[in-house]
Simulated assay, not measured.
Amino acid sequence: MAKRGHRPSKAGPSRPRFYGRHAVLAALANPERTVRQIWGTHEALDGLDIPSTVPVVFANAADLGRLVPGDAPHQGLVADVDPLEDIWLGDLLAQGEGDDRPLIVLDQVTDPHNVGAILRSAAAFDALGIVTQDRHAPPESGTVARSAAGTLEVVPWVRVVNLARALEEIEKAGFWRIGLTGHADQNLSDVMGKARICLVLGAEGEGMRQNTEAHCDQLAKLPISDKVESLNVSNAAAIALYAVAARG
């Protein structure tokens, strides 16, 4: 594939360690993912189609627990993997030419559970992919993969150096950039129209940075009750993706 558009991050990520059945099996099923080693219980490994080139170590549950953080639910499977290759923003936008799949941009969403949950929602609603800044987003990790329930392997994730320039490139590709924020005057359903949608979300609490808001075409809010101040960013992303998918 030709590499074009906004340059991805050049940071050299460390090798992730995945755990849990969904994350490990999805990594094995992804031809773009290199699995370096697998540890597992006899029960969890029974019947799995593991390439002969991947070293397999049988271990009991207690031993596996020492390979993962704290009380992480490994479900009898742990794997060391290589990070996926960087994706260029221009290549991702080219993949979306001619369709109306939404794009998600995350501004300083650093919690790996939230990013994983957003990847899962992105897969559920057939989003084109997600875009994050490299310095203020979690790396690929067992926590992200576990929260994504296997969808880390199927949803393109672009990391960029400068989010504002990336949003400019997204605009040139024909997307209507909607920033979700509680201080907007209009609801999301009132501003979507028929355009290709790029949803921009900031971290819970802080929200989007001012310069990120300035690079949105429209600000919008979700019509939530005044009984709560805001939603978790992963919940907001799921609701917004549903709204885009369900628009008439």
Results as ranks from 00 to 15, higher is better:
G76R: 08
A123H: 09
G202E: 06
A184C: 07
L180V: 00
L128I: 02
A245W: 13
K221P: 02
R7G: 00
G76L: 12
G202T: 01
N232R: 13
V78K: 06
D82T: 00
G47S: 03
Q210W: 11
V57D: 01
W88G: 03
T181M: 15
A59E: 08
V115L: 15
S141V: 00
E140Q: 10
A184P: 03
A164Q: 15
D86H: 09
S14Y: 04
G70P: 00
A214Q: 14
T132N: 11
G142V: 01
L241S: 05
D134P: 01
G150C: 08
R247V: 01
E213K: 12
H183K: 14
G47F: 02
P102D: 07
E169Y: 06
L163D: 09
L222C: 14
N187L: 11
R135S: 15
Q218I: 06
M208N: 08
L77W: 04
E168Q: 13
A2M: 08
P8L: 15
E213N: 03
F125V: 01
G65T: 02
G174P: 02
S14T: 13
L199F: 02
A145M: 11
A184K: 04
A238W: 05
R165I: 01
S189P: 00
V144D: 08
I87E: 14
N162P: 01
G116Y: 10
R17V: 15
E140R: 01
K172P: 00
F175D: 02
D86K: 11
D71R: 11
S14G: 13
R135H: 11
D91G: 11
E206I: 01
R196I: 01
G182Q: 12
I118G: 13
A137I: 00
A220K: 07
G20E: 05
A220S: 11
G142R: 09
R4L: 15
G193M: 13
A26W: 06
L89W: 02
A195I: 00
L180T: 00
D49T: 00
A26H: 02
A173L: 07
Q37T: 05
Q108T: 03
C216W: 11
N187C: 13
